[in-house]
Amino acid sequence: MPVTCGIDQGRRRTLATASLALGALALPNATVWAQRTGPATDRLAWPPAPAPLAAQHQRAWAGLSSRIEVQLPDVQSLAVLHRGHLAHEFYRAGVTADTLQDTQSVTKSVLALLFGQAQADGHVRGPDELVAQRLPQMLRVGADARVQRLRFAHLLTMTAGWKGDQTAQRDRDDDLAQIVRRPFVAQPGERFAYDNGSANLLALALASAVGQPLADYARARLFEPLGIRRFAWRQGAQGRALGALGLSLSTRAMARLGELVLAQGQWQDHALVPTAFVRAATERQSAGGYPLGAAYGYLWWLGASAPRRTAMANGYGGQWIYVHPPLDLVVAVTSRRTPESAARGQGLSLIERDIVPTVQHMR
C-alpha cells in the first residue's frame, strides 16, 4: 500500500538539501545549558497491549532493529506508539531509553505547545495578541516600525516578515535587539520564511508573559504532568532559554509529547493544552515551504491531506516526532546531528518506508 500520509515524492527529493539548513547545529562549547531536572530515569511507560495486538507488533517488527543497526547507521533511537501502546523500541549502543538527546528544531514544536498552555493559564490571550503587549521592551530598541504589528500568530506560523535565518549563534540568539533589528523583507503575515529568530523571539516573549524562566514553566505545566522529569534546555549568552533549538529529551519523552498531540491536548481526562489550540497548531496555517517543502501550522510541519493531517516536529540531522492520527500512530526518532545524516534522511525513510506501511497492513 503506498504511503500518502507524509511528504510526497517531489518534496522528498528536496529533503536531502533542505534539511541541511533546518535548525543549524550549534557547537556544544558555545552554549549554556539549563540545569537538568528530575531523577535518573523518567520511568515513562505505557500499558501492555492486548495479547492479539502484542503478537501483531512482535511479528511486524521482527528483524527491524537488526536492519536499523546495519542499514541505517545514522538512526540512534526509535520509539513507536500504536493504539496507545509501546509497540517497538530501538537504541543504538551508548543510547538508552533515559538518554537525553539534543532534539534541535523539535524545540520549536514543543514551544508551540507551551504557548497553548500559557493561553490556558491566562498568561497570553492567544495567537492574535500583539507580541509587544507581553514584551514591550522590543519597541525600545530602534527596530523597524513593523515590529509594532507583530502578533504571536506571525511567530507561530513563521510569517513575521524577516528574511529567514536557519543559523545558530550563541552571542545573538537570545539578544532581543539583535533579533528585532533585522531588516524586514515582507509585511507581517504576508509570506512564510523559516526563521530561527522568530522562534527565539517567541521564547523571550513567552518567558516574559509567564513571569519565570521558560524551562521552569515547561517543567511545571507541561513536562511533569506528562511524567517527563528529566530534560535540559540550552540558553543563549543572555541566559535565556532558546526557542529555535536546544531542548534535550529522551526518546520516550518525545513520544509522550507526540501522544499528547495525537490526543489533541487531552491528558488523563482533562485538557492539558487546549484542544482548540492543538487543532489549530496541527492544521494548515500557511503553505509553508523551504526547507522541508511542507505546509505549516503553529511551529509544526504538516503532511498530506487526511481526515486529520500528519503533524511533524523535525530537527536538524533527523530528529522527528511524527504523529499520524488515521493510524493512531506516534513515532519518535533521533539521529546523528551531522550534515551527512541530514542529507541522507534515514530517520524519515525509516518512518515512511518501514513504520507507516507496516502499521497500515495491520488493519
Rank of each mutant, 00 (worst) to 15 (best):
A186E: 02
A93E: 15
A132L: 10
V124H: 02
D171M: 14
Y91F: 15
M158Q: 09
G84N: 09
A160W: 07
A160V: 14
F184R: 11
Q117D: 11
L100N: 12
V70A: 12
D175G: 06
L139P: 09
T103E: 02
A112S: 15
L139N: 03
V106Q: 04
V95Y: 15
V80K: 00
L139H: 04
R134K: 09
D173K: 12
F184Y: 10
D98F: 00
L150W: 13
Q101L: 15
L100D: 07
Q104M: 14
R125V: 14
Q104C: 11
A120W: 01
E129A: 11
A132N: 10
V147N: 10
A112I: 10
Q148A: 15
M158P: 04
L156F: 00
R134Q: 13
Q104W: 13
V141H: 12
H88P: 03
E89L: 05
A132M: 12
H154K: 10
L81M: 04
V131D: 02
L78Q: 02
V75M: 03
V95C: 10
Q101A: 11
R125N: 10
L156T: 02
A112F: 08
H85Q: 05
A160P: 06
E89P: 00
V106F: 06
V131E: 01
S77Y: 01
Q101F: 08
A132Q: 12
R134N: 08
T107W: 06
D175F: 04
Y91G: 11
Q166R: 10
R170Q: 13
Q178R: 12
R182N: 04
D171G: 14
V124A: 01
K163S: 13
V95P: 13
L86E: 06
V180G: 11
Q148S: 15
A153Q: 14
G116E: 08
P183G: 01
E69I: 09
L114H: 07
G161M: 05
P73R: 00
H85C: 09
T159E: 05
H154A: 06
A97T: 13
Q169P: 00
K108A: 11
D144H: 10
L150T: 06
R67V: 08
G161I: 14
Q119D: 04
L81P: 00
R83Y: 07
G122L: 03
R170Y: 12
R140S: 15
G84Q: 07
A168M: 08
R170T: 13
L130H: 12
T107S: 13
E69M: 08
D74E: 14
L176S: 00
E69Q: 15
R149M: 11
R181E: 03
A132S: 13
D171T: 15
Q178N: 11
A186N: 01
R83E: 09
A177N: 04
D171H: 15
R134E: 08
L100Q: 10
A143W: 03
T157W: 08
Q76T: 11
G164F: 02
A87N: 07
E129I: 05
R125A: 14
M158R: 02
Q119N: 07
R83F: 00
D173P: 06
T107V: 06
V106W: 03
P136M: 03
V147Y: 00
L156H: 06
L111H: 05
L86A: 01
M138E: 05
Q178T: 11
L156M: 02
R140E: 14
Q133N: 14
A168I: 08
V95G: 06
E129P: 03
G126K: 10
V110P: 01
L100T: 11
D173E: 15
T99V: 05
E89H: 02
F184C: 02
